[in-house]
């Protein structure tokens, strides 16, 4: 597979390490009332779609960027690639 890195352009997927669902960015608030339950869901509940899936890939043999790759798990088409840090900020993550 070829991942079109937002900074470096097309790079072989062999250079990357796969983590999983980009929902891992949405780490729950540890002080929320339902924190235990929220962490349970965060840890163990995943969608497994046949189709579009947002995934975390780490460019380990490259620039060490974490990327959010939107990929069709059926066709392997890669529809969008973003820097995970930008995605995290857009989803309201701060310090």
């Amino acid at each position: 597979m070829i991942i079109n890195h937002p900074i470096l352009g097309p790079r072989d997927a062999q250079e990357f390490t796969y983590l999983g669902d980009a929902a891992l960015i949405d780490r729950p608030d540890w002080q929320a009332d339902n924190a235990a339950e929220a962490f349970h869901d965060y840890l163990y509940l995943r969608d497994n779609p046949a189709g579009e899936h947002r995934e975390l890939w780490f460019h380990e043999q490259g620039d060490r960027s974490w990327l959010v790759v939107t990929r069709n798990t059926v066709t392997h088409d890669i529809l969008n690639v973003e820097l995970a840090r930008d995605v995290a900020r857009a989803r309201g993550r701060r310090k």
Binding site: L19, L24, I25, R27, L56, F58, S65, W66, L83, A84, R85, V87, A88, R89, R93, R94, K95
Partner: peptide, 9 residues
């Protein structure tokens, strides 16, 4: 991962 995805600021 923690630096870029969890606490990006």
């Amino acid at each position: 991962f923690a630096r870029q995805c969890l606490w990006p600021d």
